[in-house]
Design a protein around this nucleic acid. Structure first.
Length: 879
DNA sequence: GTTTTGCATGGTA
DNA sequence: CTACCATGCAAAA
C-alpha cells in the first residue's frame, strides 16, 4: 500500500536483483514519488544494514570518502543519497561523523517552543511538507552550520549507517515510513505531491531536503529564495530549532506525549486578527523570524494547515510567492488555497471559504455580517471583501463577498485556484492565484508557454491582459481540461484509481501535455478490438463502456483534395507510405496498406505513394507529423472553440468512462440534479446560456467526428434494442396466441442474451421480425417530420435540455426515442440499397441526436458489436 | 424584470 | 453518519 509504484511489481525494486518480493516487502529508500522502494528480503536487509550500495553499486561511480573517517560512501545514487552530507569546503561526511561534529545549541528552545500543539494530524502536513522540496536546485548548503537541525531532522528516514540517529528519531522514522501511515494519509500526501514542482526530489532525497532546510534556516547568509520551490517549510518550523520542519511536530507528540499538549487549537480558538496574523511568530525563535524576513522566504503556515484538508494546503509556487511578495523585506506565509468552484467564480461574487481555513486564518467573526477584509493581490492592489458567514446546519459557512471584481481582474474561472497568504510581519492578507492550466515552476524554464499558447504561469502573464485575450479561446479549452475538469477528475480520482488505472498520478507536466492533446486523443479513440460494450448513462446520455480500454486509433491528417472533398491521409504502419482515405474513415492504431479498403490500387505496401515529398511536407504539421494540433484547428475556426470545449469534454467523459472502465452502475446512479457549470457531464459542459460559438453541422473536426460516431453507435444500439423489444413483444403475442409454453430456459436465454444478442450475425428471427415490423410502421415514419431537419446539434443547450427533459423516462421521451430509432432504421434500410449513405445517414443521426436531446437520452441501450467499425465509412461528412 | 441576499438542500468526502 | 460545501432558490431590493 505504501508504495503503489513499487508494489505494483512483484519483483524487488532493485533493478539489479530481480528477486520476488515477499508478501511484506522490506522498505528501502524513498523514491522520487515519495514512496518507499519495496525490496526483497535480501536487498532490504542490505539496505537496512547500509550495505546496499556496497553490494549493488560497487562498480558504479560516485564513491567518495568521508572527510573525517574516510569511510567510503556512495554518493551517486538515490539509495545512499541521505547517507552523507556535503561539506562547506567540499567533500562529504558520513552521517555518523557529521553527527559527531554537531553540538546542540543551547539557545534553541525547540523542545518547548516546538511543542506547538498536540496535532496528531501533523502527519499529513508533515509528509506533505517533506514532499515540498524547497531545496531542489539549491546551492551548497552549509551543513555544519545547523547542528541542531541536523540532529533532529536528520533522523528522518532510515539511516542504517547511523543507528544512533535512528534511535534518536525513532518517531521520525514512523513519520516517514509510508507503510506505517494510514492509507488516507498516503493518499493525501500523494495528492499533495501532485502539486509540487517536479524537481522537488530530483536532486535530493527527502531527508536531505529536510536537513538542508534546517540548515538553511541556520544559514542566514544564504538566500534561499530560489530554493523555496514550495512553501513547505512552515513558519515556526523553519526556525533554527531542531525540528525545523513541520514534520517533527507530530513526532514530538508521538514520541513524547507530554510535549506539545499546551498549544491552543487554532481551529477551536481562532486568535484575534492581529494575533492571528502574527500568530506564528511567537512560536518561532527570534532568530528564525529575522532570518525569514531577511530571506524573504515563503513558507506555509503550519499553524492551521494540519487542520485543513490537503486540497486547501497552499501550493504556491516560488514564482507566485515572489510575485505576491510586494515587499522584498516581507515574508509570505501561504495559508491556504481554494480551487474556485463555479459558484465562486460566478457572478454572485461570493467565494465560499473552507470553514477551517476561514476560522484558522481569517479574523474571527461572531456576527453573520462579518467584517470587511483587506486583501492584497499579487500586484499590490488592495481589495476589500466582506468576510462573513451564514448559519448552515448548526455550523457556519464562510464566504468572501464582493470578489467578483477581483476574480474578473484576475480573469479567474472555475477550476482556477486562489491562494491566500499572509504577509509577514505586517500580517496582511495576500491573495495569489493560479490558473488551472498554469504549470509548476520547474516547467517554467523550458516552458513559458504551454503548447496551446496558454500562459505557463498565470500571474506573470496577467501583467499583460492582451496575452490573455489572445489565448483565451484556446486557453479556455485547456483550462476546461485542466481546471474545471480537474475538479471532476479529482472527484473521480478515487474511482479511477481504485480501478485498474493509475494514470492520474502522472506528473503535472504530463498532465498538461495530456490535456493539450486531449481532443486529439478523443478523436483517435476506437472501441477495443473485441469489445462488448455496455452502456453508461451519464445525465441521461449513453456512453459506450468497454471492459477493455478503448484503443487509440490511428492519427491521420485531414485535408481537402483538389476537388474540395474532405479526405484524410493515413500512414501505413509497415511501409510508412501515406494513403488517401475518405475523411470519414476511422482507423485502428495499427493500420496498414492492406487495410486500405478504400483504394484498391493502394491496397498493399508495394503500391506507390500518391504524395510527393513536397506534398507530404506541406501536409504534415511542423511539429507533429501525425496529429493535427487541436489548437491549430481552434485557430482556424475560433468560433468553434467553445463548442469544441463542450465536445471535448464529452469526449473526455468517453475516455474516462471507457478507458477507466467506470462502473456502469456507479455512473448511472451518479445524478446531477442541477446544472453544474464545473461539471463535465454532457449537460453541464455546454455554455450555461447556450450562447457562444457553435459547431457547424458540417464541422469535421475530430471531436465532432467522434461525437457523431458515438451517437451513431448509440442509435445503432437503440435500433437493436428496439428490434429486440419488438421481437419480444411479438413472441409474447405468439405465446398468448399459441399457449404452448416455451421452455423457461429459452425465455431466460432470450432475456439474458439481450445485451449480447447484437453480435450482428445471429439475431434471432423474432428480432428480425421486429425489425421489419418497425420499419414498416407508418406512424413512426410520420414522426420523422421533425422540426430539427436531421442535423446533429453539436451545441446542445443543456439548460433547455433540462427544461425539456422531464427528468424521467416518460412515455413521451420513449416515443421520441422510438421515432428517432425508427427513422434511423428505415433510413438505413433505404441506404443499404443505394450504396453511399453518408449524407442521409448523417441526417438521420442528426435527427436521432435531436430526439436524443429532447428525450434526455433515456438509457436503454443494449450493447452493440463493432458498430463503429461497421459504419466507420458512413460518418456524416456532408458539407 | 433583474440582481442581491440569506438560507436550504443535497452530494460528497 | 456527519460535516462540509457547492449550489439552488426564493424573498427582498
Amino acid at each position: 500500500m505504501a508504495s503503489a509504484s513499487s508494489s505494483s511489481s512483484k519483483l524487488c525494486f532493485n533493478s539489479d536483483c530481480k528477486e520476488l518480493k515477499s508478501e511484506r516487502p522490506k522498505k528501502g529508500w524513498r523514491l522520487r514519488s515519495g514512496e518507499l522502494a519495496e525490496l526483497c528480503d535480501r536487498c532490504g536487509s542490505a539496505f537496512e544494514e547500509g550495505r546496499f550500495c556496497e553490494i549493488f553499486h560497487s562498480n558504479a561511480s560516485g564513491w567518495r570518502s568521508c572527510e573525517t573517517c574516510l569511510k567510503r560512501i556512495h554518493c551517486g545514487c538515490i539509495v545512499s543519497s541521505h547517507a552523507f552530507m556535503l561539506l562547506d569546503p567540499g567533500g562529504i561526511e558520513c552521517y555518523a561523523c557529521a553527527r559527531k561534529s554537531i553540538i546542540l545549541p543551547s539557545n534553541l528552545p525547540w523542545p518547548q517552543s516546538f511543542s506547538l500543539q498536540n496535532r496528531l494530524s501533523d502527519r499529513l502536513r508533515d509528509l506533505s511538507a517533506k514532499g515540498w522540496s524547497q531545496l531542489a536546485g539549491s546551492g551548497p548548503v552549509p551543513w555544519k552550520q545547523a547542528p541542531s537541525l541536523f540532529n533532529s531532522a536528520s533522523s528522518s528516514d532510515l539511516i542504517p549507517e547511523v543507528p544512533s540517529l535512528v534511535e534518536l528519531s525513532n518517531s521520525f522514522d514512523k513519520m516517514y515510513c509510508n507503510e506505517r501511515l494510514p492509507a488516507s494519509a498516503l493518499e493525501k500526501k500523494n495528492e499533495d505531491l501532485s502539486g509540487i514542482p517536479v524537481n522537488w526530489n530530483v536532486k535530493l532525497g527527502s531527508r536531505e531536503m529536510m536537513l538542508m532546510n534546517g540548515m538553511r534556516n541556520e544559514d542566514k547568509s544564504s538566500s534561499c529564495l530560489n530554493m523555496c520551490q514550495q512553501p513547505s517549510s512552515l513558519k515556526e518550523e523553519s526556525s533554527p530549532q531542531p525540528f525545523g520542519l513541520a514534520v517533527p511536530n507530530s513526532c514530538q507528540n508521538e514520541r513524547n506525549g507530554q510535549l506539545g499538549v499546551t498549544g491552543s487549537h487554532p481551529q477551536q480558538t481562532p486568535p484575534p486578527p492581529g494575533k492571528q496574523f502574527n500568530g506564528t511568530m511567537h512560536l518561532a525563535p527570534d532568530s528564525s523570524g529575522e532570518a525569514q524576513i531577511r530571506n524573504g522566504r515563503p513558507r506555509a503556515d503550519s499553524r492551521g494547515r494540519n487542520q485543513l484538508l490537503p486540497r486547501y494546503w497552499p501550493r504556491c509556487t516560488d514564482l507566485e510567492l515572489q510575485q505576491i511578495s510586494i515587499d522584498s523585506n516581507s515574508v509570505i506565509t501561504p495559508l491556504f488555497q481554494k480551487t474556485l468552484s463555479a459558484s465562486d467564480a460566478g457572478r454572485i461574487g461570493r467565494l465560499v471559504l473552507p470553514k477551517k481555513c476561514a476560522e484558522t486564518y481569517f479574523p474571527p467573526i461572531s456576527q453573520p455580517e462579518g467584517l470587511p477584509l483587506k486583501i492584497l493581490d499579487a500586484k499590490g492592489k488592495e481589495w476589500i471583501f466582506q468576510f462573513r458567514f451564514w448559519p448552515n446546519n448548526n455550523s457556519r459557512m464562510y464566504v468572501l463577498e464582493g470578489v467578483t471584481p477581483c476574480i474578473q481582474s484576475m480573469q479567474l474561472q472555475a477550476g482556477d485556484t486562489v491562494t491566500f497568504s499572509r504577509l509577514e510581519p505586517e500580517g496582511r492578507l495576500v491573495m495569489g492565484f493560479r490558473k488551472a492550466s498554469s504549470v509548476m515552476p520547474s516547467d517554467q524554464d523550458n516552458e513559458t508557454k504551454t503548447g496551446n499558447g496558454f500562459s505557463a504561469h498565470g500571474e506573470v502573464e496577467l501583467a499583460d491582459p492582451n496575452s490573455w485575450s489572445k489565448v483565451d479561446k484556446s486557453g479556455y479549452i485547456a483550462k476546461e481540461a485542466l481546471g474545471s475538469k480537474s475538479l471532476i477528475s479529482r472527484k473521480r480520482k478515487s474511482n479511477i484509481l481504485s480501478s485498474k488505472s493509475k494514470r492520474l498520478r502522472i506528473e503535472n507536466e504530463d498532465l498538461i501535455e495530456l490535456k493539450i492533446t486531449w481532443q486529439e486523443a478523443q478523436g483517435l479513440l476506437r472501441p477495443p478490438p473485441s469489445h462488448i460494450p455496455s452502456i453508461v448513462v451519464i445525465e441521461g446520455f449513453e456512453f459506450e463502456e468497454y471492459e477493455e480500454a478503448p484503443v487509440l486509433g490511428k492519427p491521420t491528417i485531414f485535408t481537402s483534395d483538389s476537388v474540395g472533398e474532405k479526405i484524410q491521409w493515413a500512414q501505413c504502419e509497415d511501409c510508412f507510405k501515406w494513403r488517401k482515405l475518405p475523411a470519414s474513415a476511422l482507423l485502428p492504431s495499427k493500420w496498414t496498406c492492406s487495410d486500405n479498403s478504400w483504394d484498391p490500387e493502394r491496397f498493399s505496401c508495394s503500391a506507390a505513394q500518391e504524395l510527393t515529398a513536397e506534398q507530404l511536407e506541406n501536409l504534415l504539421p511542423p511539429c507533429n507529423s501525425a496529429v493535427p494540433k487541436k489548437m491549430k484547428a481552434t485557430k482556424q475556426d475560433p468560433d468553434n472553440a467553445e463548442a469544441l470545449e463542450g465536445l471535448d469534454t464529452l469526449a473526455n467523459l468517453a475516455i474516462l468512462g471507457e478507458g477507466e472502465a467506470l462502473p456502469a452502475s456507479a455512473q448511472a446512479t451518479t445524478k446531477h440534479p442541477r446544472h453544474r457549470p464545473g461539471c463535465s457531464c454532457i449537460v453541464c459542459i455546454q455554455p450555461p446560456s447556450g450562447k457562444g460559438p457553435k459547431h457547424k453541422q458540417t464541422c469535421t473536426c475530430n471531436v465532432c467526428l467522434t461525437v457523431k460516431r458515438r451517437f451513431r453507435t448509440l442509435m445503432l444500439r437503440r435500433e437493436k434494442k428496439q428490434s429486440e423489444k419488438e421481437a419480444e413483444t411479438t413472441r409474447k403475442k405468439q405465446q398468448q396466441q399459441h399457449p404452448l409454453p416455451l421452455p423457461s430456459s429459452e425465455i431466460l436465454l432470450d432475456e439474458d442474451s439481450l445485451p449480447c444478442s447484437n453480435t450482428g450475425d445471429s439475431s434471432p428471427n423474432q428480432n428480425k421480425e421486429g425489425n421489419d415490423g418497425s420499419d414498416d410502421d407508418p406512424s413512426r415514419i410520420k414522426s420523422s417530420a421533425s422540426p430539427f431537419k436531421g442535423k446533429i446539434d453539436l451545441n446542445i443547450q443543456p439548460e433547455r435540455e433540462e427544461e425539456l427533459s422531464p427528468g424521467s423516462d416518460s412515455g413521451g421521451m420513449m416515443k421520441l426515442l422510438h421515432d428517432a430509432t425508427e427513422r434511423y432504421l428505415k433510413q438505413q434500410t433505404v441506404n443499404s440499397g443505394t450504396g453511399d449513405s453518408s449524407g442521409s445517414q448523417s441526417q438521420l443521426v442528426g435527427d436521432a441526436m435531436r430526439e436524443d436531446k429532447l428525450s434526455n437520452g433515456v438509457a436503454h441501450g443494449s450493447s452493440s458489436h463493432n458498430t463503429d467499425k461497421e459504419h466507420a465509412q458512413s460518418l456524416p461528412m456532408n458539407v
